[in-house]
């Protein structure tokens, strides 16, 4: 925690500040009997600086998408708080809430599903503007074209009259990004923006996002399961497991000196293309991520952890330790 405070004191205040955020989903039987809560996000804290590009990495079900949706205001947090530009997001309403929604853009995973199939591109890009009261047609057209140019789809009217199904996957994702940009947000949350795209297109889209991020000095939060794409597109990484952040550090630091056993396992499972891969069996921790309905006590990774210490890891929650400078890890191994 001390490092975070130090960092924020150095620069200006962070754009996003999340403290002990919890997003739980209640499970009900027959529509009313509460039978428990799925703790999708369970006590997450971090700060995002202005113009910073970060990645949240984890397996499916680790809570990274729920975290993204909570940041977007799509889920109400169960506890904790999210501050954006100094305002408590939970308290926003009416015009302030619309301002917040305009300030945070959203890029989704499945570009085809993210675009209403019955609208043409012009309409799709006009929608956010209409919602935010840009009534002047010419003004809307101007902003739509600017966004399209920014994602390298314009100029030209051809694309504006196309329907999503007429576009390639890459073009669809560019439209999705243009829609996120059209309201000129301060932050973009991209949830697996390239996982449904072909390899050659992935790089294009990632480069595009990075370029836009640096040109507009946006805060960019990537949600991804793919550590290998992160290196070139994020400054900082948060590794999530079972609803918690288990490790965070600058990209190179984290990839070269992973501290948390989970991160180490994750990195070990990722192949860099090499014909020799076929001849070796990878170390994969046994078992599967725990149920978020009944997470294990103590460290949530302990049932799969090769270094689990009985009496500690299965009893007490690890706090955040700082085994290396500016490198945080939630593991008892790093208790000093």
């Amino acid at each position: 925690m001390s490092t975070e405070r130090a960092a924020s004191a150095e620069s200006t205040s962070p754009l996003v500040s999340v403290r002990d955020l919890r997003t739980w989903f209640e499970l009900r039987q027959w529509g009313f009997l509460r039978v428990g809560s799925v703790r999708a996000v369970d006590g997450v804290s971090f700060d995002l600086g202005r113009g910073e590009s970060v990645a949240f990495v984890g397996e499916s079900g680790c809570g990274k998408s729920s975290l993204a949706r909570t940041l977007l205001g799509l889920h109400r947090p169960t506890g904790g708080e999210v501050s954006f530009d100094g305002y408590r997001v939970q308290d926003l309403a009416g015009r302030d809430l619309q301002w917040y929604r305009a300030s945070v853009g959203y890029v989704q995973q499945d570009p085809y599903g993210a675009l209403p199939p019955f609208m043409d591109v012009r309409r799709i890009l006009a929608e956010p503007l209409v919602v935010h009261g840009v009534t002047d047609r010419a003004e809307r057209e101007r902003r739509i074209r600017r966004a399209l140019e920014e994602v390298r789809l314009g100029p030209g009217d051809a694309i504006l009259d196309q329907f999503p199904h007429m576009l390639s996957g890459g073009q669809q994702q560019r439209v999705v990004i243009a829609r996120a940009l059209v309201l000129e947000p301060a932050m973009i949350i991209a949830d697996e923006p390239v996982s449904m795209l072909d390899a050659s297109v992935r790089v294009e889209i990632l480069n595009l996002l990075r370029r836009i991020q640096s040109e507009r000095s946006l805060t960019l939060a990537f949600i991804t399961h793919d550590l290998s794409t992160v290196r070139h597109y994020a400054d900082r990484i948060f590794v999530m497991y079972a609803g918690r952040i288990v490790e965070q550090a600058q990209v190179d630091e984290l990839l070269e000196h992973p501290q948390h056993p989970y991160t180490q396992a994750l990195l070990a499972a990722i192949a860099d293309v090499d014909a020799a891969n076929a001849r070796r069996v990878r170390d994969v921790p046994a078992g599967e991520p725990p149920s978020l309905l009944h997470p294990p006590p103590g460290c949530r990774f302990h049932p799969r952890c090769p270094h689990a210490m009985a009496g500690t890891c299965d009893v007490r929650d690890p706090g955040m330790f700082e085994p290396r400078r500016d490198h945080l890890s939630a593991c008892w191994l790093h208790e000093r």
């Binding site: 297109v201 990632l206 480069n207 550590l227 290998s228 290196r231 990722i270 860099d272």
Partner: peptide
């Protein structure tokens, strides 16, 4: 175009 985890080379589209 393949992103590499352990190399600094940037993927090219």
């Amino acid at each position: 175009s393949v992103p590499r985890l352990r190399q600094q080379t940037e993927p090219a589209p």
